[in-house]
Design a protein around this nucleic acid. Sequence first.
DNA 1: ATCGTTCATCGCAAATATACGATGAATAAG
DNA 2: CTTATTCATCGTATATTTGCGATGAACGAT
Lengths: 115, 115
Amino acid sequence: MAEHKRHLFDKDEIDIAEVAKALSHPARLKILRILSQMNVCMCGEIVDLLPLAQATVSQHLKELKRVNLVQGEIEGPKTCYCINTDSIQKIFEKFQNYFNEINKECNRSCKTKKK
Amino acid sequence: MAEHKRHLFDKDEIDIAEVAKALSHPARLKILRILSQMNVCMCGEIVDLLPLAQATVSQHLKELKRVNLVQGEIEGPKTCYCINTDSIQKIFEKFQNYFNEINKECNRSCKTKKK
DNA sequence: ATCGTTCATCGCAAATATACGATGAATAAG
DNA sequence: CTTATTCATCGTATATTTGCGATGAACGAT
């Protein structure tokens, strides 16, 4: 009786919501920043830069991979992570479109009666 | 032992994460769309357009107000909701900056070794 | 004053998310 | 083969989110 109704919405909204969810934790935002600065990097390096345990960071990375913001490739015992540039570009465009849409026709907001 | 570590991150990341969280549910994305199309509108109208109970919609509206995406004004027994245009503009700029930042220096991603 | 409408909030149940220690898989090095 | 390193995953505890019925507050209309 909770978190069951997501399916009842438009695919568009569900998709954007998924990405927003992935971006809804400071640790994940920071991981993306780290990855964008460090080029390719390994999980351990990220762990060293965050106040979180290795298991937790691994979970956050998994979530970022799930929505395609990040890609990881196993290299022997290590795993090499990096930003998924193409995907991020597309994702950002979706956000941009959404924001444009909800910001378009709003000259007539209730601020007119605000005072 | 959970959801306690948010405070340990940069204010910047915490702020963006807060907004992303508000945008992380399809119902809330749809509510914003509805508000942007209907000009000002009352909670009841939104409830009619969503597959959710009134109490639930009210909660979602509260969350959207919390991060300033929406403003609401009580008018007698009704409450008039509308998009907070100015605030949305600022919020979008933050997102934009963040995306630009993580997308900047990534010519050197691991796709080079992808194949 | 009473009634109906509109909505916020409370209290609860269930689902998810967050965090971590422990374990195990995979490989490199010895 | 043994060991050390790196990481994913499992299991678990706790916190948060989602959803709703029930209730009550605020007002307009009668």
